[in-house]
Design a protein around this nucleic acid. Sequence first.
DNA 1: AAGTAGTCTTACTCGCGAGTAGCCACAGGA
DNA 2: TCCTGTGGCTACTCGCGAGTAAGACTACTT
Lengths: 227, 227
Amino acid sequence: MRSEQGDRPARAKRLPRAVRERQILDAATAVFSQRGYHAASMDEVADVAGISKPMVYAYLGSKEELFAVCIKREAGRLVDAVGAVVDPELAPEEQLWRGVLAFFTFVGEYRDSWNVLHRQAGSEGQPFAVEIAEGRRRAITLIGALLAQAAVAEGVPEWFLGETEAMAAALVGAGESLADWWLDHPDESPRAMAARLMNLAWMGFGNLVNGRTWQPPTTPKADAAPA
Amino acid sequence: MRSEQGDRPARAKRLPRAVRERQILDAATAVFSQRGYHAASMDEVADVAGISKPMVYAYLGSKEELFAVCIKREAGRLVDAVGAVVDPELAPEEQLWRGVLAFFTFVGEYRDSWNVLHRQAGSEGQPFAVEIAEGRRRAITLIGALLAQAAVAEGVPEWFLGETEAMAAALVGAGESLADWWLDHPDESPRAMAARLMNLAWMGFGNLVNGRTWQPPTTPKADAAPA
DNA sequence: AAGTAGTCTTACTCGCGAGTAGCCACAGGA
DNA sequence: TCCTGTGGCTACTCGCGAGTAAGACTACTT
């Protein structure tokens, strides 16, 4: 009863550096996820890691470095999770489905990781927002390429190739938003979430790829594409 | 040449309170938009407003209050802009189109407002993140109702009514993401952006509403909806 | 046992930024 | 002309949080 619950390593029991680093990163991810970068304090990170502040500095450097390492680790996990399932040999539709499914599985598994990557990403002035935005952009480009590939596989209406990137951006946003929505409906399975996104995206793209576009009702003028 | 450019009111020229308050809110919106809530300093807000810090406190209260007022004002603008065009008499499709168009027009017009509402919203621990999340939720509910209405208007497959909220969430996310994408492609018109979203959303919903769902390719099991 | 390398702590410094005290100035009514 | 209220300022206090100095404890070598 002299220490806290067996939950966290109550008070520093002399562990090898590698282990401590992992603990610190875990703690940092959790704290950054809850508080956001600015509101998070190194004291709290140290506390949650069950260790004292100078250790954090000794092992992981400054707050900014620590955050950067967190980002890298979590982003790596996500990329690995998706990369492990998207064999480029497969049909675009199936690649997309597998990627989307892997994404939601990852989000379900590592909520904090996702939170750090998604929320704390864009908000700050410059520091790593750039890096994250870059990762996001890469994802969009990748998905855009996938859509273009799919479009070519079907009989592609020419104009659609100029639209793939914007569509990919929308798709990514829809995925992020669905992931948020998931937080309020935790009983849903990753498969069901992924299926939702695919239904929205693919059934929509299915029409678009076949040249069936939507037109504004009142004005006859079409903006996104020639009729 | 004794003062700065005619750009900002160089150094306090004795204006009525109402005017100053507007200026302060404008400045605060800009600063919060660029820095984010935590990184923004009251000194900078005061500076941008061309005024000294105590005035900000005298007129708008604490930093948190100031931010809250900003949020309220910008959210109000957005709600007004959308609310002004979505006559509930109209067909769901047209309501959605008008709403989406109004949204992108607003974003184009008031970048900072949108930034404050969108980015700085979710990131913080509790303060007003709640209020914004609430607004977002209302938007999702509203759009969800619209989709349900549309679904009923067509021959609705029963199961779809349970999906409208999730679809609305996805749609909102897609809109946000497209708005971000727009920042990198500023030559696009609001109409073109809105048309893109409608194409993705409506052509997708068009299929869904008619019972044409997407199915995972390898596994025969359907998750989102019964075949 | 004594040396030494790596783990871990207490107890600081120091700057930045929220919020305030107290004072100045000008416009208009007496 | 003086008087007062409202607009405005300079110049502080004060706490919080990033980052550090200096040393203590433990385990493994020789």
